[in-house]
Design a protein around this nucleic acid. Structure first.
Length: 592
RNA sequence: GGGCGCGUAGAACAGUCUGGAGUGUUCGCCGGCCUGUCAAGCCGGAGGUCGCGGGUUCAAAUCCCGUCGUGCCCGCCA
């Protein structure tokens, strides 16, 4: 885009422009002053072009520092033979300066605008506006924009209606912690920021929208991770009169369109599907990374008669023994301790390791407790060759597979993001056990059961109509066919132990809405931040969020969150606890 | 809520284990030289609360305790 102050975008100046008079504007990337001749690079959003000037004719060139904002008018010329720069898109040409104007000088930078240096992230966030000038970050911004454009293009083509839902809604204590906003007009009452537009999109189905989507900001007040922020962006989508396969086919098209846009690859559709059961048993995860093998193997049957106490105890108490072949790994006592520690972190009580020696024998702290036959069976089951490391976990099923699934990821996961492995995980259990042995929904309580009878009679084994999308072991998002029958919805609340009075108070308005001819409906939501993160080869969501927060929820640039004045609190009918007040006073109090 | 790592000049680091003068490297910054560089080069210079507080010691960037900041992970994230 070229207008007004310039005739050309810097990155587009080419041999076609030779002998032409051009004006470019941008930032001084680097000045190289040779005395009688000086070069500097001008960078704008489109790229970089080199300017040549005689400092005697243009003394202003002596003043140019990095990141000065400048305008340059001059004549495009071919670079002298042997001085072309093949690394630069505009490397065949340069601009001979006639006029150089400093539009805006720059202070000395806190860090250089350069992808080759790793800067402390706190400093980057404090000067995010400079950080975003770096080519990698600028590329991530553009990628994100292209991703959302591709999403809108695809869904518009499929007849979807983009609808905005409110971001000040009612709080529901289930699920993640709500971000709360105090109401001034109704002191003492609070809005919540939406964790997702879930109920509103279902209402839109009742409203007759039939095909809805929204690129929605969502909020969850939980602890941070590399792939989790307080606020994040989802593609939220819902449709009526369709089933799971139509939802998946739609989302697949969107994912493929974004992958095509950002990676130029054609993702083969339909995407592979795994049942939750298979994902857990083979990969120890409900978001398996299929870019590598190292699959889990059930060793229980080979060890039913074992004398080894740990295995014996687990098997007798209906647990399971699972193993993985981690392949050739550097091995040491320290490494063994480290992996055992990690296994415990993942919930295991311990970890059995075995290294296959050159003669085929097993080196392991537990080898002496296992019979020759048992050792042989383990080796065969795990395809063990000399030099391989075998890891075995014995526990209740869920723990055993999840521990090995975690270790599998630690040990086998490819470093790069070159390969893309999308997949669906389907047939999730409807409920799972919570820590008190009670029952809790594994998706959300609006997810329909595959069978209502099964849900009522055997809730533990009941399947739900929920599905997840996974890319390279990253959970992109999930969806489900919803409950459209208010009676079933009430039953689910009941099974979950939500008192009918409470359900009525919290969700009565929604249950009532379901009574007015609700169409069968279902949908999906996936995290745009995570999708763009993986496609851009980033390992943190913060690299694709323009202004993210640190792990403690702070924005180092603006200082948010901040203390507020007493009069603001008074207007809201909110007071600080004594300890918060003390911290505020210690910090120098409120501003203004 | 918990575990682990990191914090030294504007930036990136080494030095910390094994205590001995703020020692050093690269980039940036300031001054000078330089007509084909593109992470230009050469010469010179400035720049430090070793995150903060306490302790041990004749002596602490270094050892110990606490604290703050930051990152990764576990819990949490329907």
């Amino acid at each position: 885009m070229v207008e007004g102050m310039r005739t050309h975008a810097a990155g587009t100046v080419s041999v076609d422009d030779v002998d032409g008079l051009v004006t470019v504007a941008g930032w001084v990337q680097k000045r190289r002053d040779h005395g009688g001749i000086a070069f500097f690079d001008v960078r704008d959003a489109s790229g970089v072009v080199q300017v040549v000037a005689d400092p005697d004719e243009h003394p202003v060139v002596d003043d140019l520092k990095m990141e000065y904002c400048v305008s340059v008018t001059g004549t495009v010329r071919r670079r002298p033979e042997g001085t072309e720069n093949p690394d630069l898109a505009t490397g065949l040409v340069e601009i001979g300066a006639d006029d150089v104007i400093v539009l805006s000088p720059s202070r000395t930078l806190p860090f250089m605008i350069d992808d080759r240096v790793e800067i402390d992230e706190r400093v980057r966030l404090q000067y995010r506006y400079l950080d975003l000038r770096r080519p990698r970050m600028a590329a991530n911004l553009r990628a994100r924009s292209r991703a959302t454009a591709a999403i809108r293009r695809t869904l518009d083509g499929l007849g979807f209606l983009e609808v905005e839902t409110p971001t000040l809604i009612n709080s529901t204590p289930e699920g993640a912690r709500d971000m709360l906003v105090p109401s001034r007009l109704r002191q003492g009452e609070f809005y919540a920021l939406p964790q997702s537009p879930q109920l509103f999109k279902q209402l839109l189905m009742i409203s007759g929208v039939e095909r809805y989507f929204q690129i929605a900001r969502c909020y969850r007040d939980e602890d941070f991770r590399a792939d989790r922020q307080l606020e994040f962006t989802q593609l939220d989508l819902e449709g009526s009169f369709w089933g799971r396969d139509e939802v998946l086919a739609t989302i697949e098209k969107v994912l493929a369109a974004v992958a095509k846009e950002l990676r130029g690859v054609d993702v083969e559709l339909p995407l592979p599907r795994l049942t939750w059961d298979e994902a857990m048993n083979r990969f120890g995860s409900d978001k398996p990374d299929l870019r590598f093998g190292m699959e889990l193997v059930d060793l229980t049957d080979h060890l039913t008669g074992t004398e080894f106490g740990v295995f014996k105890g687990v098997i007798e108490s209906a647990g399971t023994v699972r193993g993985i072949n981690a392949g050739a790994q550097e091995w040491s006592r320290a490494r063994a301790d480290q992996l055992t520690e990690r296994a415990k972190e993942l919930g295991a009580r311990g970890l059995v390791w075995m290294v296959v020696e050159d003669d085929g024998s097993l080196r392991s702290p537990v080898a002496k407790f296992l019979s020759e036959g048992e050792q042989g069976a383990i080796k065969t089951a795990l395809d063990a060759e000399p030099g391989h490391l075998l890891l075995i976990a014995a526990d209740r099923w869920r723990t055993a597979v999840e521990v090995l699934g975690g270790l599998r990821n630690d040990l086998g996961r490819p470093k790069g993001h070159d390969e893309l492995s999308f997949l669906w995980v389907v047939d999730f259990p409807l409920f799972e056990e919570d820590e008190d042995g009670g029952i809790t929904f594994s998706h959300h309580p609006f997810t329909s059961p595959v069978s209502i009878d099964e849900m009522r009679d055997h809730p533990q084994g009941a399947l739900s109509n929920a599905y997840d999308a996974v890319l390279n072991g990253v959970e992109l998002g999930s969806g489900s066919i919803r409950i459209h029958d208010p009676a079933v919805q009430r039953q689910v609340f009941e099974i979950l132990g939500i008192d009918s009075e409470i359900a009525e108070r919290r969700f009565g308005w929604f249950l009532e809405a379901l009574e007015y001819g609700t169409p069968p409906h279902g949908g999906f939501a996936f995290g745009i931040d995570r999708l763009v993160m993986v496609l851009q080869g980033e390992s943190s969501i913060r690299e694709v969020i323009p202004f993210p927060k640190t792990q403690t929820g702070v924005d180092p640039m603006t200082g948010a969150p901040t203390w507020v004045d007493d009069y603001q609190l008074a207007e809201l009918g909110v007071d600080l606890t004594a300890s918060s007040r003390a911290r505020r006073d210690e910090a120098g109090g409120s501003e203004g």
